[in-house]
């Protein structure tokens, strides 16, 4: 990637501000996911409530990044790596916002959904699976943001590969829940809640994968999306 500064220092500082906004948004979203899961695990309504209240900030970040990117494209007419970086950031900010939505959704299960009991013994194996899924998804999210910040194309490729594991853990959780619901019909609400959470974590993994793909595009100028479906 390009390390030389632009002739226009103004352009450089605009890009810098945009990148730091993006990083801040990533940090915020990461915290949201973490807090939502924390609230879920501990049935902490207050924490869930605070996650929900911060959702608004995530949206603000997205709008801000959209506007800044549009302005820079209009005023600087960026080309090549600059253009790809901006496009990558624009698209990734959408993904980050979606991740924020998923965190909100997890929080919503507690504030709006039917009561569930995460302390039941029958649920413990599944909950440990969920914790594993959470680890994997958070890892992907953190990695993809790091990749973006460091323009680390090789790391991004690894991050993309990690999505497969997320998917398989998710499928295992869904399978376990299906069995659990058959065996313990009293706890259906809890199972549903777990499925919701797992579903959100899986989506978070997908979005993190998108972000990593954008990193590859930004760095290499190569569109690696949908290769699985397009070429196979």
């Amino acid at each position: 990637m390009n390390d030389h500064p632009h002739i226009s220092e103004q352009f450089d500082s605009e890009l810098q501000v945009l990148q730091s906004n993006f990083a801040a948004m990533g940090g915020l979203v990461e915290a949201q996911v973490q807090d939502a899961m924390q609230a879920f695990k501990n049935v902490d309504l207050a924490l869930a409530q605070s996650v929900r209240s911060r959702e608004e900030r995530v949206n603000e970040y997205e709008i801000e990044i959209d506007q800044e990117t549009t302005t820079i494209i209009a005023r600087r007419q960026p080309a090549a790596s600059d253009l790809r970086l901006l496009i990558g950031m624009l698209k990734s900010s959408t993904d980050l916002e979606r991740i924020g939505d998923e965190a909100d959704r997890i929080a919503k299960i507690m504030t709006k959904g039917r009561p569930y009991a995460p302390t039941l013994d029958e649920l413990l194996p599944i909950l440990s699976e969920v914790a594993k899924l959470e680890n994997l998804a958070s890892q992907m999210l953190r990695e993809s943001l790091n990749n973006f910040a460091r323009k680390d194309e090789a790391g991004a490729t690894k991050t993309i590969a990690a999505d497969k594991e997320v998917d398989s853990v998710y499928r295992a959780i869904v399978e376990s829940c299906r069995n659990g619901m058959a065996n313990f019909p009293d706890h259906v609400d809890s199972y549903i809640a777990i499925i919701w959470v797992a579903r959100s974590l899986e989506r978070i993994g997908d979005h993190a994968k998108n972000i990593a793909e954008n990193v590859v595009y930004s760095v290499r100028g190569e569109d690696i999306r949908h290769h699985g479906t397009a070429t196979q």
Partner: peptide, 19 residues
């Protein structure tokens, strides 16, 4: 040339950098 040049000199020129 304008989205993904292969040469660094081209890239620098296109994006308004001077190496």
């Amino acid at each position: 040339i304008f989205t993904n040049p292969t040469q660094k000199q081209t890239e620098d020129y296109i994006t308004g950098r001077y190496g």
